[in-house]
């Protein structure tokens, strides 16, 4: 195999996987032979390896030559890139948030506050959030790299579809009835996490205390609370179904606004019922006072148990009330506008 053949074979190896590789190699060889012949004639030199080296150097490295035949110099092309960034932002935000929330929940429920284990779990949580983010980044990129190569050119249009773009859309004010996709995706993910904790990991709803030779778990709620779980499930599942429906339709309708009002009213009613049910909290001053930790620590927890739960529940009720008022206001505003 002479130098020219080796060069042509090396270019062939670096060509993208497409039909016509052999044809390109054949044409390249023919061109190089023409160049050599021309160079030998015009310079009066004989065709030898030195002349071949000169011509090949001038032609460029095999990688560079192969790259000129590559119809896809991009991993993800400029047409697909905005959509790629859009999806990547959503996926990374959701993945990192879920991992951090899970780590936070685990740190709070499995360890005494601010102990060495607490810091360790938070550290591990940050580590897993980072590796999950890297994995998500890799997977999303891989999917788009494949789409870039599999989808026909017309389908890649995505965000840059000039023909479908209507400048009149710029003049309109933001539509109060359009839905925020990011918000909905967040809501679905967190509602799903809440469903999973309530039904699959109810043991997370409490606190683990570690002493030198034993591990004590004090649940946050009594059995009374778990009687409400089926009703909480109904509300949470309805919320997810409504969000998925909105995600598909991209716009609020009177029916979905009414659905939102019903769901907000149901969740507020449930919260009030839970708060008003006596003996629902297992995480009480008494249970903590009998816990396996030093008296001064117990005192802190007793204070937390006595004051924190009502405060937290009051905040939840206020937030839910505001959400209900907002949902009712939007429903009626929509009705008056359509009259």
């Amino acid at each position: 195999m002479n130098l020219i053949d080796r060069y042509v074979a090396e270019v062939g190896k670096n060509l993208p996987l497409l039909n016509g590789r052999e044809d390109i190699e054949k044409e390249l060889k023919s061109t190089l032979e023409d160049m050599l012949e021309d160079r030998a004639q015009s310079s009066g030199r004989k065709r030898d390896e030195a002349l071949e080296i000169e011509v090949l150097k001038e032609y460029g490295s095999p990688q560079k030559v192969a790259a000129t035949y590559n119809p896809h110099p991009y991993l993800i092309g400029p047409k697909m890139f905005p959509l790629y960034l859009f999806v990547l932002k959503i996926v990374l935000t959701v993945v990192v948030s879920v991992m951090l929330v899970l780590a936070g929940v685990q740190a709070v429920t499995d360890t005494p506050f601010m102990g060495a284990d607490f810091v360790k779990i938070i550290g591990q949580g940050l580590g897993s959030a980072l590796s999950a983010a890297i994995a998500a980044f890799g997977n999303v990129t891989l999917v788009f790299v494949i789409l870039e190569r599999v989808l026909p050119e017309k389908e890649i249009g995505g965000f840059n579809d000039e023909k479908d773009w209507d400048p009149a859309s710029l003049a309109k004010e933001p539509d109060p009835d359009s839905v925020s996709r990011t918000e909905l995706i967040f809501e679905i993910v967190f509602t799903f996490v809440a469903l999973a904790i309530l039904n699959v990991y109810p043991q997370w709803l409490g606190m683990f205390f570690f002493t030198e030779n034993e591990q004590v778990f004090i649940p946050m709620f009594t059995e009374m609370f778990f009687q409400f779980v089926p009703w909480i499930n109904v509300v949470l599942v309805s919320e997810i179904l409504l969000d998925i429906y909105l995600l598909r339709n991209a716009i609020w309708s009177r029916l979905t606004r009414l659905g939102k009002v019903v769901i907000e009213a149901a969740s507020l009613t449930l919260t009030v019922l839970i708060v008003r049910t006596p003996g629902i909290i297992a995480f009480s001053a008494e249970s903590l006072a009998n816990g396996p930790f030093p008296p001064e620590q117990a005192e802190v927890f007793v204070t937390i148990a006595t004051y924190m739960f009502p405060i937290i529940m009051a905040i939840v009720i206020i937030i839910q009330s505001v959400e209900l008022v907002k949902a009712v206001y939007r429903l009626f505003k929509m009705r008056s506008e359509t009259k």
Binding site: L28, S30, T31, D34, M35, D38, T68, Y69
Partner: peptide
């Protein structure tokens, strides 16, 4: 014309084109 002859023809007319551009 074949690739190299076209390249020479264009160069003779005053337009130098890079081979890596013309053949693809």
């Amino acid at each position: 014309e074949y690739g190299y002859s076209l390249l020479k023809k264009l160069a003779d007319l005053g337009l130098d084109v890079d081979q890596g551009t013309l053949y693809p």
